[in-house]
């Protein structure tokens, strides 16, 4: 076995560049495709049997900068406040001084941002917890299967309680430390939001992780709404690239020099 997986091959380039290209082109309305990952090697191992989600996954396909509508085919059900916040964020971007958010500040962006960008993540099932590790922001999310063990404090990533329904892991996350951006355009979720993820493996021409997100956030939406994402099984992406954003964000001058604006509260 060579370390060719470590070479800067089209695989890595695709992953690094893909999301970039996708975001750029998507913004202009083009049907952007990220530079594709090369096919999973034929001899790559499959996921573990049963409902185990363990292994390495990555968002496939193009990065969608803004969730276009719900799974019901209807528009995202913003209320006036939710729409106002999104509009302000879009306007800031267009003005040449986008708002800084958790992402820009090298803070955990929370789900689903952690999963959606084209960076790999790994899932471990350990005792009565499920641990996610993300390449992006070297993120970590603990899903507690024993509700008694959930910590009391709020977290950037929220507090996640999970239970199995057959082959589906149902994760309920609340207790966000601050409001989160659901996508790169800034579809909002308040700190009081309740986010449910229904996660399971499917085989759809290849092994996938299907996640149905449901957001219950009366502060910004008129009703709960759902959207679905598919992630690819990619054991070959096991060695993550280092995401040492603190080297930049720890510089107190960073935001001021970045060309970003601070979002009004």
């Amino acid at each position: 076995m060579t370390a060719m997986d470590r070479t800067l091959n089209s695989n890595m380039i695709a992953r690094i560049c893909g999301a970039v290209a996708a975001a750029i082109l998507a913004a202009s309305g083009a049907a952007a495709q990220p530079r594709p990952l090369p096919p999973l090697p034929a001899d790559a191992p499959p996921p573990p049997p049963g409902h185990s989600l363990e292994g390495i996954w990555i968002a496939g396909g193009r990065l969608v900068p803004q969730i276009p509508k719900g799974d019901d085919g209807l528009s995202v059900p913003f209320n006036a406040e939710g729409q106002r916040i999104l509009d302000a964020r879009l306007a800031a971007m267009k003005s040449g001084a986008p708002f800084a958010n958790a992402s820009a500040a090298c803070r955990p962006p929370g789900p689903p941002w952690q999963m959606d960008l084209n960076f790999p993540f790994e899932i471990h099932e350990v005792a009565d917890r499920i641990e996610f590790i993300f390449e992006e922001y070297h993120g970590a999310q603990t899903i507690f299967l024993d509700p008694a063990k959930v910590p009391p404090e709020s977290r950037y990533s929220g507090r996640s309680i999970g239970h199995w329904e057959g082959d589906t892991l149902v994760v309920d996350t609340s207790g966000f430390r601050q409001s989160i951006w659901l996508d790169v355009n800034g579809t909002p979720a308040s700190a009081d939001a309740k986010l449910t993820q229904r996660i399971r493996k499917i085989n759809d021409g290849g092994w996938r992780l299907q996640v149905v997100y449901t957001l219950d956030d009366p502060k910004y939406y008129t009703r709960p709404w759902s959207w679905t994402r598919i992630y690819l099984w990619r054991p070959d992406q096991q060695t993550f690239l280092e995401y040492n954003c603190e080297e930049q964000a720890g510089d107190p001058n960073y935001i001021a020099q970045s060309g970003l604006a601070l979002e009004p509260k």
Binding site: M1, T2, M4, S10, C17, A44, P45, P235
Partner: peptide, 21 residues
Amino acid sequence: NSVTWRGGLLKVAALAMAMAA
């Protein structure tokens, strides 16, 4: 999204998983 490479930089990623390992 083409990338032009000089020399032998670009190697096709043919991962051979060492299943024995």
